[in-house]
Amino acid sequence: MINPALREKIERRKRLLTGIKEELIDRLRLDFRADEIDDDTFLFGGGLALDSIAAADIIVGLQFRFGVILSEEKILALQTVNTLADFLQTEHAGGFFTN
């Protein structure tokens, strides 16, 4: 039995991760479900093997969905879905992902 405070943290994180994955899937027209992308999957190079064109699409998608503006350099440095979630969580502490 997970204690309620921990459960709440986990649920918030899950919602954020799912939102990011759904945005990647919609924006990049990936033919997969959100639960088929692991949290530590690399966005560029290995993993999803996205390129700089995809990075530009992701930037637009994150701005549209989360209201966050990222540079291409920044998104390349974030590397994985999980680190992208960290960034959004920090930028919007108490914001969208708490809904």
Binding site: L30, E36, I37, D38, D40, T41, G46, G47, L48, A49
Partner: peptide, 9 residues
């Protein structure tokens, strides 16, 4: 699948 770095399959 436990490795949590899954590339799309």
């Amino acid at each position: 699948l436990e490795l949590n770095t899954r590339a799309l399959m």
